[in-house]
Design a protein around this nucleic acid. Structure first.
Lengths: 332, 332
DNA sequence: GAGTCATGTGAGAGCGCTCTCACGAGCATC
DNA sequence: GATGCTCGTGAGAGCGCTCTCACATGACTC
């Protein structure tokens, strides 16, 4: 289709002024029924769709929101379904609000200034930052510039940034308590990176429970990749050959750990019980199926979107996590 | 947010007209060096960034392209890193062209008309459709409406649609030939859905090699999910208990198949060799590590983006796939 | 010294839309 | 019948930008 019809054409066809046509298109009530009908008919017949650029120009709204994945997230992006869940959730909510989703994956270089420029210039009504490190400067900068921002994950610097987070500490506590209840004595952990809030909080949850239950804590640190989980598990086994349980800060690392355990001849859950975190689809398909902590990723996306669309909504949200018990922690 | 400076302000500060300021901002060469410099300084000092809406309004370009995942893709989205790779690739290329990426995941309902309306109305310079079924009507509709479209995956109806595809048949052939060379006699396959081009082509590759090498073909069909792979494998085992190899049309199903084999007491690769397709990260971490066919997902994204940005480029692209040999087909 | 030409610059139109404001019609009030 | 409403409608300004066109300037030709 070449020439797209303009409001002018619609108005002409309906025999009204452009202003009235605009009123009908934008759903104003103060239009006489028969005129409204005439305009709607004209819209229908002409296949009219408003030109967003023209609209934005005058309303100063963009009717679109940006979802930014800073570089560290981008790196894990391809292998961690968590992000896919968040994207789905955001997309669903955005669609309901009849807005558009602009996805920005920032590269390793300074392409983050690109985001800054883009976002501070009215191209977008709000920005969702899937902040991995809680220390990312971007949310602060944008907020100061007056752009509505919401962080996915609690920023590590307490401030007035709005955020939606998972109950990481609570989930970790439940997971570790579960291991204690199953009679495990030497419970180690493979923690996530300690510059990410999820890594920090999950480790804190582990520590809290062990302290209260009088167990010793045994910690190795990974970076949330399978590979690092496998390596950390090896190290743990070397440090304490008698450990009989591991709480792993995410499923990807837990899968790596499972592999190391298998190769080291340790039976799971016979010799060692394993709990992961995230409940990615692969967890249920691990051998043995992995006990893990489920987090509502799609819901997180939805809440992020809803919050960014409502600048008044300032209350942080912490979404509940849930322990999913499978074979990897079966009573031995 | 303080009022963003307009071109007018920049021009005033630099002591030139709006037109000249515009020339400098848009990189016209026909501007005197010292004036160009003055304007650039003003831009710098004021922190000027062009208003995209205003620009689009007059240029009729949107400087953004849409990446559409039709519903079936959306469903697998969360668990198949293939899509993440494509998104990364598209994002990289789009970023280089200094344009924006609008992501649209269509829901199960008719939200696809939303895409149609959006795309046919100049909001977007082009559309990339990650067409799962080759029969999706969307690409055709948009093309006819004059919107540049590129399909990810060859459309099943031969026509003039532009596309970038993987060499599915070639990859499948190499995989099956590999099994033959390793001395496997009864080579089964778990095919993908036969309404998706990837499913069809991979099965065709399998059939071609077996026909030529005088093996019998044994086929079960899955839907590219782990679960369906596990089920299909059970069926295959029931159909032909003596099979000694399986070519599985994607890694997710292969992972499911591996699990079934393990539970059925079949050693891999001792009793049964397994080859997957995709080379997702989990494949290398399977037990045993999975021989599979690697496809360049990021490259596919890049090519899709490049093609959609250049409406003249009409030549279909078929990207090479590569066999990655791992433990699951070790010589027995 | 008049004519030609390339070159750089500014004036101004106009992209398609929203929104303010003024106005006329209809109705109730006094 | 004059006054004051409300209600629906149209005229018109203007959002920030690009781009065409006309114009000014200076270099060059004959």
């Amino acid at each position: 289709m070449r020439a797209r019809p303009t409001l002018e054409k619609v108005a002409a066809r309906a025999g009204v002024s452009r202003a009235t046509a605009s009123r009908v298109v934008n759903g104003s009530t103060r239009v006489a029924p028969r005129i409204r009908e005439a305009v709607n008919r004209a819209v229908e017949e002409l296949g009219y769709v408003p030109n967003q650029a023209a609209r934005s120009l005058v309303t100063q709204r963009a009717d679109s929101i940006a979802l930014v994945f800073p570089e560290p997230a981008t790196r894990v992006f391809s292998d961690d379904p968590t992000f896919a869940g968040i994207i789905r959730g955001v997309s669903l909510e955005i669609e309901e609000a009849d807005k558009q989703l602009v996805l920005m994956l920032t590269g390793p270089d300074g392409s983050y200034q690109r985001v800054e420029r883009y976002a501070t210039n009215g191209h977008v009504d709000g920005v969702i930052v899937a902040s991995m490190h809680g220390t990312d400067p971007l949310p602060g900068i944008l907020t100061r510039r007056g752009v509505p921002v919401v962080c996915g994950g609690r920023p590590s610097v307490p401030g007035d940034l709005r955020y939606v987070d998972m109950d990481n500490a609570g989930g970790a506590e439940r997971a570790v308590r579960h291991l204690v209840e199953r009679g495990r004595r030497r419970i180690a952990t493979i923690a996530g990176p300690q510059d990410m809030i999820a890594g920090i909080d999950r480790l804190a949850g582990y520590r809290d429970v062990l302290r209260d239950s009088d167990h010793r804590s045994i910690v190795a640190v990974g970076d949330f990749t399978r590979e690092s989980g496998a390596i950390a598990m090896r190290q743990l086994l070397a440090d304490d050959p008698d450990l009989d349980a591991v709480f792993v800060a995410n499923d990807l690392m837990a899968l790596g750990a499972l592999r190391t355990l298998g190769r080291a001849g340790r039976a799971v859950p016979g010799d060692v019980a394993v709990v992961g975190f995230d409940d990615i689809p692969a967890a249920a398909y691990a051998e043995p199926p992995l006990t893990t902590v489920r987090q509502p990723t799609v819901e997180m996306g939805r809440r992020l979107a809803r919050m960014v669309l409502d600048p008044e909504d300032r209350a942080p949200v912490v979404l509940p996590t849930e322990l999913v018990v499978r074979e990897s922690t079966r009573r031995s």
